[in-house]
Design a protein around this nucleic acid. Structure first.
Lengths: 230, 230
DNA sequence: CAAAGGTTCGTACTTAGTACGGTACTAAGC
DNA sequence: GCTTAGTACCGTACTAAGTACGAACCTTTG
């Protein structure tokens, strides 16, 4: 005999796709592990039954798509206007990096799905192109810059994500770097001459200073070629 | 009553971790979908029972680690020597890209695990550093270049992977580009003014010419700063 | 030829995605 | 107020996948 079910029909804060996505991001970013995100856990976190989520999303894949969309859609560019192409490029580059940083678990999603929803396009591509064009970069060049910057940020965040990075100037970051340095220096010298000799530098690879180095090189060359054409 | 088990102990080509990893790469690269790689399917492909694989690997994660290691460890740099820093940087950049291209499914793995096994370090990091140093780039700079190049290649491959790219000069590539271009051009003009105006350029983002553009900008700026210091 | 050690894998347990159908609550019409 | 739809919710159960366990088999060694 079926036991009468007790449901909590009216809830304080109504469930929406928005709230679900945000909870999903919170869960996976906290654990720093997208694999730990399961439909059951997500439902529990939200205080609803597992299958309830399926009235909002067709599948788990849909939820993951939603997470990627949400993150790109909410990307924020600082209010202060840029005064020249170089500033704009740097602004955008760091905006991408910051976005990845705030949602580390989402980085992986970008290598398995195309995020061309209106939300994502508006928040990222359109906003960035507008910013670059406003700073005086011709449209076609702006597109190439966009491509480079998002691509570089994805790659850098991917590289950085699985390594404990911290900041180079905080306690944990320094300690992590120290250990990494010793790891590389401790390899066989005749087999890894370069890695051993450059252990200190190699240990620094996941830090933001590396991002800055690549970014500024790119900006310098790009700005120069822009003014050559002008 | 337990039925007597029939095993095929002696096999033509003996099972090794190597053969397992190669089969795993073949499977996932063919489907272009790492999610389709299951222990059961892999075992079937190899003609063995599922649990047999667990005498070679502790877990599926171990297999995935092995795949990443294998790919990095087998990275190949062309034999022709480079005559200057610029050539060396380009060589390495394309070597990374080629590697990702040959094993598209592995790209995702790089954003969730550190690949610091001896195999991977020898095949990728040590070999690349040696190449760059041999071309006249000072060690510390070479490390930064390595970081940039692998990072950029990962990012670009991640961006490109989920989009049908083909070559820009082959049938499929042209058709895919045409469709993408129309997709962007068909968006609301008042909401996406830049994307609509630049639809043709945006549609080209996943092609190798974009990789080349970013790479050559980076190389130009890097070579210039190297000679400034010298 | 028996004991030892390594390889293979059948079985079964657990977790996760999700199809299906049912339940409770609300709103609309009488 | 009572019925009828519609909506939000979710219990149950099926399937697929990772993997612990231990048995069966093969080869080697004494």
């Amino acid at each position: 005999m079926p036991r009468p079910q007790t449901r909590s029909q009216r809830r304080d804060t109504p469930l929406t796709t928005e709230r679900i996505i945000e909870a999903a991001l919170r869960l996976s970013d906290t654990d720093a592990d997208l694999d730990r995100l399961t439909v059951r856990r997500l439902a529990t976190e939200l205080g609803v039954g597992t299958m309830t989520l399926y009235s909002y999303f067709r599948s788990k894949e849909d939820i993951l798509d939603g997470m990627a969309d949400h993150v790109l859609g909410r990307m924020s560019l600082p209010d202060e206007p840029d005064h020249n192409p170089a500033e704009a490029l740097r602004t955008v580059g760091y905006a991408f990096l910051t976005m990845m940083r705030e949602h580390p678990s989402v980085v992986r999603l970008f290598s398995s799905r195309v995020t061309d929803s209106p939300t994502a396009l508006r928040g990222a591509m359109e906003a960035v192109l507008q910013r670059l064009v406003d700073a005086g970069i011709p449209g076609p060049d702006a597109v190439r810059c966009y491509g480079f910057l998002i691509t570089y940020a994805i790659g850098f965040a991917s590289y950085q994500a699985p390594r404990q990075w911290g900041r180079l100037d905080d306690e944990d970051g320094i300690e992590a770097r120290r250990q990494r340095s010793h790891f590389y220096a401790g390899l066989a010298k005749d087999e890894f001459p370069q890695v051993v000799a450059l252990a200190d530098e190699v240990a620094e690879l996941p830090y933001d200073s590396q991002f800055e180095a690549g970014l500024s090189a790119y900006i310098e060359a790009t700005v120069r070629s822009l003014s050559d054409h002008a």
